[in-house]
Design a protein around this nucleic acid. Structure first.
Length: 487
RNA sequence: GGCGACGUAGCCAAGUGGUAAGGCAGUGGUCUGCAAAACCAUUAUUCACCGGUUCAAAUCCGGUCGUCGCCUCCA
């Protein structure tokens, strides 16, 4: 079965047909490193993480390049505010980026080029554009001449007239056309700068991706990705630069994911409504955020809220509980199978159904639904099992559980041992409560003695008291266990 | 103003012509001293609204309303 991907350029789902048989070349726009990453960045990183993992699972070789923008106005401004060196600031937040993405269990790309390490390649590209009449020098800057590039606006579905009509751009005397964009910026005193044929300066934002993708993936490659907000102007300008310079198509497929919203508004630095990855991970296990993000197809908006995280957490618990239950079902005998043909088929057909969901534009929401659907059947089977279950049934359960875990793993889910997952969560939640494990255990002991004398009033008082602290008691055949009550 | 996306149960969310996946919450049951947890079962005659095409529409076409995004830095 072929993989179909929605292509922003054509607004249709298209078959993935790598230029080089079996080898997908993917370029994704990474962060500008001047601050901590928010969960919108997390979505970007996680969406491409699952895409890369899935393509590899499907047998493709994937060369995955994601850049760091480590020089730009925002970095310079922030560095000035904090009285630090711009390069140091950029380096620091690249390191913080790794702290966050490592905690999320994100695979590192094959190559992570930085803008400042590719100034020479950018200069070469700008020269080519000047030679072809697509760029011009103006003062200390170099600009791209948009009206010379016939396809300008194709990716974002606009034309120059429309854009000018609604443009909120300030008039710049240096530009021949208001929509022209800067390729090289002459530096002002005190700013980071590099030598160039046009004097000291620094590159414009868009040119780095054209230069670096060309260097590592070639003039034409398979997939270029990023957030929807990059379609215009960033990706539009990349196409103008790259195709302008080479005369060849740039990327064949463009993947753009939707935004994370809060109260249905886009999360962004300028609106000050963002939550950083680390703020969220201080409250929830990383896989909860992954589950939330993959519960919606990547192109749709995703509204973040505590309620949504709670739901995701409950769902993840359900997944782990199922695995843990299956792990407890060992020792098959030669009893009769209790699994119906229908249930057996459902369990055994998970993989092809999962693949067909993912083949259809990486529909993780549907894929997760299939996983839960299988979990429902697995749970049912476990509950039907007699004392001496048939070894065939045990084998089917274990295979089913293993398949669930393997496929969930493509989304970076169910990677913990179920028992470990529970422990980590308990520890995390206990830290936010005003009670120690010793206190809890002492009260459980008191209550056990009360229960022995059938003093239900005392027993219930203790239980209620603990519940007020967020501790939930569970009486079982082997004594009383406790758990943190979910938010 | 231009361009685009979306509107499916209380909430989230699949479904892109063949008679509504899944999760959370709710309800009933099993279990329990009573609970909780867990498991099982169950929950939309209907897909914003109005028209049209079709044997058949949540899915296609036209219109209306609503929400959001891009056109400035943004994942």
């Amino acid at each position: 079965m072929p993989i179909r991907i929605y292509n922003t350029l054509t607004r249709k789902k298209e078959l993935l047909q790598p230029i080089e048989e079996g080898h997908v070349k993917l370029y994704v726009c990474g962060i500008t490193s001047y601050d901590y990453c928010h969960i919108g960045h997390a979505r970007s990183v996680l969406v491409f993480d699952v895409i890369v993992r899935y393509l590899r699972y499907r047998g493709y070789k994937v060369t995955f390049v994601r850049n760091f923008t480590d020089i730009d106005d925002k970095i310079i401004n922030r560095a000035n505010e904090q009285h630090v060196d711009a390069a140091e600031l950029a380096q620091r937040f690249i390191e913080e980026f790794y702290v966050d993405t490592d905690r999320l269990g994100v695979l590192r790309p094959d190559l992570e080029p930085r803008a400042t390490e590719h100034i020479d390649e950018m200069i070469v590209l700008i020269r080519e554009l000047i030679d072809r009449g697509l760029a011009y020098r103006s003062g200390n800057d170099v600009y791209y001449r948009v009206d010379r590039f016939a396809d300008y606006g194709r990716l974002s579905g606009r034309n120059l007239e429309d854009m000018q009509a609604g443009a909120r751009i300030e008039v710049n005397e240096q530009k021949q056309h208001p929509m022209d964009f800067v390729l090289w910026k002459g530096s002002k005193p005190g700013e980071p700068k590099w030598e160039s044929p046009w004097g000291e300066g620094r590159p414009g934002w868009h040119i780095e991706c054209s230069a670096m993708s060309r260097k590592y993936l070639g003039e034409t490659f398979d997939i270029h990705g990023g957030g929807k907000d990059l379609i215009f102007p960033h990706h539009e300008n990349e196409i103008a630069q790259s195709t302008g310079a080479t005369g060849k198509p740039f990327a064949n497929l463009w993947i753009h994911h939707g935004f994370v919203t809060i109260h249905d508004e886009k999360m962004s630095k300028s609106l000050h409504n963002f939550l950083t990855i680390r703020e969220v991970l201080a409250q929830y296990p990383p896989e909860v955020l992954r589950l939330l993000i993959f519960s919606t197809q990547y192109r749709n908006p995703l509204d973040f809220s505590a309620a949504a995280m709670r739901d995701a957490e409950a769902g993840l618990d359900r997944m782990y509980d199922c695995l843990s239950r299956i792990a407890g079902c060992d020792g098959g005998g030669d009893g009769k199978s209790v699994i119906s043909l229908k249930d057996r088929k459902k369990i055994e057909s998970l993989r092809p159904r999962f693949e067909s969901a993912m083949d259809n534009d990486f529909n993780t929401a549907r894929a997760l639904g299939l996983l839960f659907d299988t979990i429902k059947v697995l749970n049912k089977v476990v509950s039907m099992l007699p004392a001496q279950p048939a070894s065939d049934d045990i084998e089917l359960l274990q295979n089913g559980g293993n398949t669930v875990r393997e496929l969930a793993g493509l989304m970076g889910l169910l990677r913990d041992d179920p028992a470990v997952y529970v422990e980590i969560k308990k520890k995390m939640l206990l830290e936010s409560l005003d009670i120690t494990i010793e206190d809890i255990e002492k009260l459980i002991g008191d209550r056990a003695r009360a229960r022995e004398r059938k003093d239900w009033a005392t027993s219930d008082t203790i239980r209620d008291r603990l519940l007020q602290d967020g501790i939930e008691l569970q009486d079982g055949p082997e004594g009383t266990t406790w758990d943190i009550k979910l938010r």
